[in-house]
Design a protein around this nucleic acid. Structure first.
Lengths: 349, 349
DNA sequence: TCTAGCACTCTGGGCCATCGAGTGCTAGAA
DNA sequence: TTCTAGCACTCGATGGCCCAGAGTGCTAGA
């Protein structure tokens, strides 16, 4: 059994594949054997390269738009390329952009995340994405009931400064002191998770005095509502316009479907969720995506963590014809800095 | 001086202009005199229409891509068309979509707004926009200091349930009771605007005991910070993908620049800010926009109010070749419902 | 003032020849 | 065995050409 059949390419085939991918990404034109010989210093003639390219095509890594055209990578070719890619280094300007961003950043993780997607979209010229995992089991630091005219607002502050709100109509027969006394009782919820808090409030309602009973029951329901909404995930996006830019090669319809898929969130969400279990980077390319909307796109994502706990994923979407090296390097760097920040904040809090 | 020179078109010219616009919007093809005669029942021949069209071109309402092509509206032509357009009626499905949305809506205005842009984008197939005006003069309902590990968080609740956060490092020598006692003092800020609150906190700092002094000064600074950030405006967008869809006629570059301009916010912001002073609808078309990015786009926007106070603007962006009647009707209807909701909430609170 | 008729103009599409990039193959060199 | 030089071949892209058709502008007459 030859090494090729076992899926291991010889070093020269690798070099050729790499040259084709990089040249194709650069120019967008199918790459001919001549170009590869000029570009790479392999010390072999174009005829040899041609043979190698034919072999790579046979193996499914390259295609041929038509007989007399050069080769372009298939999704599988990109995959192979990505898998062999050694970690890259950031350009100085990029390094500085990242450092600047994390130097002047706020404490609010959600805000930082949005900024980080923007950072990624300018670093890579693709669209930046982020998904913070939902925090259904966030712990309550404070909970209180606030009167706003004819409504009551339940305000809950979670462990990391996250704020949750829920509204309810103010009961008709509310005693003026009731919100205050209920709020005092709510201090008992500190340290509980949202779900535990909801249960506890319900329990307190069945024990409490008649005046508080109604209010506490209401708080219990509101907390359940908060917990439900805290479970919802959503994707932060920046630089969607870049997708229309870089992708002059795409048809308008493709761009539309991609933008729609991103806005609909679900596809991207499940993708980034997968990324979060990955150790490091996760790259998915074209046909590897389950849904057709993303068949012309590639997603590079990485989890960010506080210590060992995965908090979410951050990454980019772009065309399959992507500068993977730059994209991967940038995503990796940003994810790492984000993890550092989250760990630092988490450890302190 | 003829009526035409005074800028008033005869009724037949109006009818022709209208027919050309609507046919062009429908098909995207330049419209010939024959088509207009078939389509409209004006009872005149195509030759007469040709004369009218030539006159309309002379007046700058129509153009001619080339000699043997039909006419397409200019920006000025669209403007004229929009100005003469009688208010339209919603289709039953649209009416229902709007009613459904406002029936099941939450109390949180920001959340409702985002939903409303989504609603508009599905109603019109263009991109939905909204800008809530900043609330630098929001009044403080509650302000408190919360300990989060090594940080302190200042949490401020505004009049309409808006929540503001600011973080500060926890002073080294903080007395365990200090945050609590400071929080108690902060109840004195209720009813003040954010700026007044900042001043007041600073004043309290200079009067208070040595333990509280530092904390209150910190609160004053944090409130200033909150106020600054509350002044920032930003645009909510939904359905950006629609822009790539409807606009198959556009070049990719145009779409990109438009999407970028939207994401950059500033252009759109100033546009919607103008809309907010308008009584009712404001429509800006193509070259009427100051910045070139929007020269192929039209924006339909309307303010929404609580009582007499303008709270922000909501609207859509699409191509100049837009179904203005549908767009205007939808924006008007949604803005009205939004005003009703805001008024209702505002009156209660 | 409107209409019928007609000559004129211009674009878009189909067709064709040409060009050239790039291939695949074969035969010979290393 | 592996590589290379050479060469015939393929096929899309490009540009010229022509024609049909849509739509105009104008003129003369109702």
């Amino acid at each position: 059994m030859s090494t090729e059949q076992r899926g291991e390419l010889g070093p020269r085939k690798m070099a050729v594949l790499r040259a084709v991918v990089e040249e194709y990404v650069r120019t967008g034109e199918p790459v001919g054997s001549e170009t590869v010989t000029e570009h790479q210093s392999l010390g072999v003639s174009s005829a040899t390269i041609r043979n190698e390219m034919a072999a790579l095509e046979e193996l499914g890594y390259l295609t041929h738009p038509h007989t007399s055209a050069g080769r372009a990578p298939t999704d599988l070719g990109y995959r192979r390329y990505v898998d062999m890619l050694p970690p890259g280094r950031l350009r100085e300007t990029q390094r500085r952009a990242i450092a600047d961003f994390f130097r002047q950043t706020a404490h609010d993780m959600e805000e930082v995340l949005l900024g980080a997607t923007r950072l990624l979209s300018t670093l890579t010229q693709y669209a930046g994405l982020a998904v913070p995992w939902p925090t259904a089991e966030d712990r309550i630091v404070r909970a209180e009931l606030i009167e706003l005219g004819s409504h009551l607002m339940l305000l809950v502050v979670g462990e990391h400064g996250r704020v949750y709100k829920a509204y309810a109509a103010r009961p008709e027969d509310l005693h003026p002191d009731a919100p205050r006394s209920a709020s005092e009782q709510l201090s008992a919820l500190s340290g509980l998770t949202l779900s535990e808090g909801a249960e506890r409030a319900a329990a307190m309602a069945s024990e409490g005095g008649p005046g508080e009973r109604a209010l506490l029951a209401l708080v219990g329901r509101a907390l359940l509502d908060v917990r439900l909404r805290a479970e919802e995930e959503h994707v932060l996006v920046s630089g969607a316009g870049n997708l229309a830019a870089e992708l002059a090669s795409w048809r308008m319809e493709t761009v539309r479907r991609l933008l729609e898929a991103i806005e609909r969130e679900s596809e991207v969400l499940s993708l980034l969720r997968q990324a979060s279990v990955a150790e490091d980077l996760s790259v998915t390319i074209g046909g590897e995506h389950p849904s057709t909307e993303l068949w012309d796109a590639a997603v590079v994502a990485a989890p960010y963590r506080s210590g060992e706990i995965s908090l979410g994923s951050i990454g980019i979407v772009g065309p399959t014809r992507m500068d993977y090296l730059t994209a991967m390097t940038a995503v990796r760097a940003v994810a790492r800095r984000l993890s550092d920040l989250a760990t630092e904040l988490g450890a302190q809090q």
